[in-house]
Structure formats: structure tokens, C-alpha cells
Design a protein around this nucleic acid. Sequence first.
DNA 1: GTCTATAGGATGATAGAC
DNA 2: GTCTATCATCCTATAGAC
Lengths: 173, 173
Amino acid sequence: MTGKKENILTAALELFANEGYSATSTNKIAKKAGVSEGLIFRHFKNKKGLLQALIEDAEARISRIFAPIIFESDPRKVIKTTILLPFSIEKSEYDFWKLQFILKWEVEYHKPNKMKPLIDKLTWAFSELEAEEPEKEALLLNQIVESISIGILRDGMETQNKLKSFLLKKYKV
Amino acid sequence: MTGKKENILTAALELFANEGYSATSTNKIAKKAGVSEGLIFRHFKNKKGLLQALIEDAEARISRIFAPIIFESDPRKVIKTTILLPFSIEKSEYDFWKLQFILKWEVEYHKPNKMKPLIDKLTWAFSELEAEEPEKEALLLNQIVESISIGILRDGMETQNKLKSFLLKKYKV
DNA sequence: GTCTATAGGATGATAGAC
DNA sequence: GTCTATCATCCTATAGAC
């Protein structure tokens, strides 16, 4: 069950997410994983390969989380679920999210269009609800949700909880 | 005018802001600054000292930018100026802002209360305008502005320009 | 699959000359 | 103030044994 390869991934995720990619040495990862340093390179070729494996894992999880929104057909529910999204993240998934956000600041991993499907769906929802400028509403809500996510990951859910009911009321969903 | 100490600061700022603190070696900084590596340590004791000098500089600039809002007495103008804030950043200041945001992900430099004065002022403004929940309005607007700033720094001002007039309209300022 | 040993280079930092 | 030379340490990665 607890293969050593997985130990490495778990340790690396926690360290990359909380201390940064460059600041984390393969030595630290190996120690935390209870594994020899060489094994990391056997399994992942190099340090970047290890990061890549984590990124792919994280992206899979994230599209799984977005799926219920993309396939929702009630516009009100699309907006409601989007607002609730950051509050429904499980603690066990925090490091995956953190990694996402940290990597946005590392040039080579930042893809601005990653949120396009969500924004498109939100645009559709707002236009169904006859908003004056559905695309801008969508862009704005997307950014609000993103900034709430960041707030939760950095300072804890309590700091953002006030905004939850406030937003639901504001958007009447 | 172009003292070597300043060269070091300029080079380090650009590198720290765009490639991260840990990913930037003192060797790279020295080369970019056209200076010997040893000089960095003469002037700033160590790499952390160099970062600290930049942080202090950045914080001074930022409070200078916030000042006009804090001392504004017209609540509508407080909100308007806050919304316009990220759009009024000069290109030459981008790296200072980037550094601010990057450091928020490095535990030891993240202070969640840094925005308190702005949030307090916004709370006051919204309560003057008789909003139902002024504190929550303030928290929300603060986060919106922060996320727009991030968007500008990462993807350019064009990507955020749509939101500018949209927000001014939404907040009727 | 996993470990040990180690290569080869980069890194932060110091000492000493000018 | 500034540079050159140098150090000890740490880093990523490989080779070879089990």
C-alpha cells in the first residue's frame, strides 16, 4: 500500500507546496520519505521529473473538482457551486492546491488559460440569468473565488468564512 | 549616481521578483549587476540581508501608495481610488509589487494583517454609504483588488482592463 | 526496487590585497 | 569600496552492489 514511490511523492508535495520547489533539496525529500536519495532519481529521472509527476496528479484532481460545475445545467447552481468551491476543499488536498498557486509564480508552469472552461461556463450562467455583462461578471467571480482560495490556503478557512454567506446572498443563489 | 550598491539592489530585485528568492544565486546577481560576488556580502552581510533591504524599500513604496486612500475623507473616493489602485501602478514598480506577492508564499515573510489599514478605511467608507454589511464589503473589495493586482503582474494590464470600468459601475463610484 | 558511495559542480560566505 | 582567490558545504545526479 505504502510504496516507497508514493512516500517520495507525498514528501515532495508537502515540501514543494510549503517551502517552494527551489528551496527543497532532494536530500530533504529523501529523509522525509524515509528513502535513499538515489531512489528519487531512479523513479523520476531528476528533480524536475518529480515535480512534473506531482503537477499531473494535481491537474487530474482539479479537473475532477471542476467537473460538477461544467456539467451542471442550472445556471443558479453553477454560480452557487463555484462560490462554494474553495470552501469544499478537503484538508488532505490543501497541498495540491498550494502547489498550483505557487507554480503560477514560476514562469514556465503558468498557463493563464487554465481557467477558461470555468469562465466560459460562468459566462453562460450569467447570460442565462440575464446579467448585463455576463462575461465580465464571470471574470470577476472567477477572480473572487481564486482569491478566496488563496486566503484559505494561506490563513485558514476561518478568515474567509465571512465571505461565504455574504457572496451567496449577493449573488442570490 | 549609479553606485554599485544600487546596481546590486536593482539586479537582485529583478531576479528575486521574477525567478524567486531561492532560485536566484548570489553569483547570478553579481553578474547581472556587473559586480564581484564578494561585494554583495560586504554591503548586505548575507543573501537574506539583501532581501531584507529590498523588502524595506518595497514596504516604504507601498505605504506611500496607500497614503492617499487612508487620508481621503470622501467615502466614494476611497472606494474609487482603491479600485483604480492596481491600474495606476507604474511599470517601473512592477518588480516591487511582484516581490510582495511572491513573499506571501514564503512563510516567514507573510503577515496577514498588512492590509488592515486599508480594510479599516474601506469598512468606514462602506458604512458611510450605508451598506448593509460594511466590513464584509470591505473584505471583498480588498480581495478583488488584490486579485486584479496579481492578474496585472502576471498576465499584463490588458487582461484586467475589462474589470476596471465594470467595477466602477458596479460600485457606483 | 533499493541502498551506499561518490562524482562534479554550484552555492553562500570569508580573507586579504588594492 | 571593490576585486580576486579560496573554502566548506550542499546540491543534483550517476554507478554499482545487493
